[in-house]
Design a binder for these strands. Structure first.
Lengths: 169, 169
DNA sequence: CAGGTTCGGTCTGGTGACCGGACCGTTCGC
DNA sequence: GCGAACGGTCCGGTCACCAGACCGAACCTG
């Protein structure tokens, strides 16, 4: 975000969390990382964010320990750290609310448990197994409210195919 | 937030949710509403936000159907609508992450199920009852990481007492 | 009923964040 | 060796946010 001032004085855990992931693009970057988008140019293409802002946000997320900058095939890539992976419940909650209250036409994407194929419930749990699968055991596919690829790019097209979360595009 | 442009083009439910509650102060306002803060001046005192911004955010939240502006005792008050109450899981997720990853010294606040007194787990569920109680059945109290009232005001002091959520201060 | 206070705002000028677009060093393919 | 792609940085304009001043309505006080 940042709230601009006195981080240390922020009592509430909500405020502290928003200090890290409350910025304008931050949560969308994290979302794309869960979707398997790892490279600077891919993030830029999919999000439509300016280079300068993306660069700054990524640096900040790495600094905060949410992402790790790793070389991959000669290029740089950004992977979620355990601290970043722990944001999965936040993403699930945001997703559920958006599907319920801001998505006329139905859910844009559906999620299911890779192990048993059951669709996840609103809390990210698997009704069949009785527990919430970690993101790498979750498969994403377009839902009834999907209107095709978000943009013309390679990344948007890839995310329209059923795919396992955290699997690099 | 807003993401500034083409709201309708936002495919992802996460982006749509952030359009509504991703703004700089929005989620903190919603949090305070869950805590029972209902009045303009109380929100201003507790959040330390400027009048202009608070006024604009509240109007936007009312417009989006998250809050309802209701007269109360001759003055105005803002209450969470069902759509706003549905943000409870988001708040719980943000809270849990902040406690886990951004709160040296332990949780600032603890939450328990009013009906049975059991502390809630990280997902907002009651381990004893096996379900997630709605916010008005949740009691909040200072946790081990609390360092006293956040500010000198009446509201901050009230929120240091054990109290049921949604109960007006 | 006059005067002051509280409440719930709006208005204004300054500052910092975000934007698109240009530029730049390194790496890759050929 | 050369051009293109990658992963940034730099720059000027715009926009959101900030503190502080101002303002009308309601309420209390004498």
């Amino acid at each position: 975000m940042a709230l601009g001032v006195d981080y240390a004085a922020q009592q509430c855990a909500v405020a502290r969390t928003l200090e890290v992931v409350g910025g304008r693009w931050t949560m969308l970057i994290v979302r794309d990382c869960f979707f398997g988008v790892r490279r600077f140019s891919d993030l830029r293409e999919h999000l439509g964010v300016s280079r300068a802002v993306l660069s700054e946000r990524l640096a900040q997320l790495v600094d905060d320990g949410v992402l790790a900058r790793v070389p991959s095939g000669g290029r740089e890539a950004y992977d979620l750290t355990p601290k970043g992976l722990a944001l999965w419940p936040v993403l699930v909650a945001l997703l559920a609310w958006g599907d319920e209250h801001a998505s006329p036409g139905g859910a844009r994407r559906l999620f299911s448990h890779a192990a048993c194929g059951t669709d996840l419930d609103r809390a990210g749990g698997c009704p069949a197994c009785g527990l919430a699968p970690p993101p790498h055991d979750v498969v994403m596919r377009p839902g009834p409210g999907s209107t095709g690829p978000q943009g013309p790019g390679r990344v948007s097209a890839a995310l329209q195919q059923p795919r396992r979360l955290l699997d690099p595009v």
